[in-house]
Simulated assay, not measured.
Amino acid sequence: MSVALVSPLASNSMRQEPLRVMVVDDSVVIRGLISRWIGSEPDMMVVGSLRTGLDAVNQLERINPDVAVLDIEMPELDGISALPQLLAKKRDLIIIMASTLTRRNAEISFKALSLGASDYIPKPESTREASAAEIFHHDLIQKIRSFGAKLRRAVPAAPSPALVPAPGRSREPSFRLQPSPVAQPQLVRRAFSMQAPRVLLIGSSTGGPQALMSLVGELGSVIDRFPVLITQHMPPTFTTILAEHLARSSHRPAHEAIDGEIVKAGQIYLAPGGRHMRVYRHGADAVIALDDGAPVNFCKPAVDPLFTSAIEVWQGGIMSVILTGMGSDGTRGGKDIVAAGGSVIAQDEATSVVWGMPGAAANAGICAAILPLNQIAPKLVRLFSGDRS
């Protein structure tokens, strides 16, 4: 057993101290790499470096971490088996599952989310690949920091931010991480477009898989009459599994988009991991275009390319939704959609796992509505049925 421990801090000083991170992986190379990355950040520290899930369960109370980076495949007790035992001992523990990009691991990661994991992160096949290691490094630190920031905002739950006018239902598991919003200034809300929506575009990231499965499960009539295009920040293989889950949740066809295919009503198109999804007009048809360009907003696929490209096809007939996620991807494209006459809806902070992407859009003043997740689908059904308010 390989264990490195730092004694836990007194509870009354936890809020002022760096985030306490436990790294659990049977690879000494990966443990060392992640530990060095975390150790170089001023707002976080490694309090445990463990080889197996059993070590993590046995040492949890002594180490007292805020966040655990948990490998899936380990001897003695694997990550998916250790997960519920860790949460039983510490209900508010943030657990980020780490796995290599295989279909089996992708399926296990989805199962982990349903069991209470906060998020997942794909590990590169080899840390010798500089670009893959760099992305892994960036994403891991951002996830730890974003979840840690929410964890520290431990204040009583409050209603969604008040909105002021500006001039001129699913069987999928719900989120484990409970909301802890802070007081917000009033956010400007724009009027919905008077143009009838002809397409639904959705962008999401951290917490997005659960939110998407809940949302599409209530959108049957919209999907039947209009195309739905989704960009979820996700690697290859994971998007394949997500498309299958979306099909089951919606009882409608859902698949990873194919380059050159015609966009049709009654279909859910998901941007495949590792490729940006755009659309363009060819005669009377809207057509999918996939590309292998550079990451946008550190993401690939990214939401902005889809949002911005859709304007050429549907102009002001775009209804777009920005769901839970880190960063600000979608805000620039959302601004373009609004300028072209379309509308943007953002998920509210209380129901978002991370209020980065929807929060950026809300604070940019481009949203016509900022709603709890369970209110977005009913609103969309009304809007696509002719409601303009």
Results as ranks from 00 to 15, higher is better:
Val338Gln: 13
Gly334Phe: 07
Asp285Val: 10
Asp224Ile: 03
Pro378Arg: 10
Val296Ser: 01
Tyr269Asp: 06
Pro165Ser: 08
Val381Gln: 13
Asp71Phe: 03
Val57Phe: 08
Gly359Thr: 15
Leu215Ser: 09
Ser389Pro: 04
Arg281Pro: 01
Glu61Ala: 09
Val21Ser: 09
Ile376His: 06
Phe384Val: 11
Val338Glu: 15
Gln195Leu: 14
Pro65Arg: 03
Pro209His: 05
Ile258Phe: 03
Ser389Glu: 12
Met194Cys: 08
Ser343Val: 13
Leu54Ser: 06
Gly79Pro: 05
Gly274Asn: 00
Gly79Ile: 08
Thr102His: 12
Pro227Trp: 07
Pro253Cys: 03
His137Thr: 00
Arg103Tyr: 10
Gly334Glu: 14
Asn374Ala: 14
Lys90Asn: 13
Gln347Phe: 15
Pro84Val: 05
Cys367Trp: 08
Ser385Leu: 04
Gly148Ile: 00
Gly386Phe: 06
Phe192Gly: 08
Met194Thr: 13
Leu212His: 07
Val67Ser: 01
Ser214Lys: 04
Gln232Asn: 11
Asn374Ser: 15
Glu256Arg: 03
His138Ile: 02
Val222Met: 08
Ala257His: 01
Lys150Asn: 02
Leu373Tyr: 06
Leu50Phe: 13
Val23Ile: 15
Asn297Leu: 02
Val6Cys: 10
Ala368Asn: 10
Glu41Val: 09
Val287Trp: 04
Ala157Gly: 01
Gly116Val: 11
Ala133Tyr: 00
Ala339Met: 15
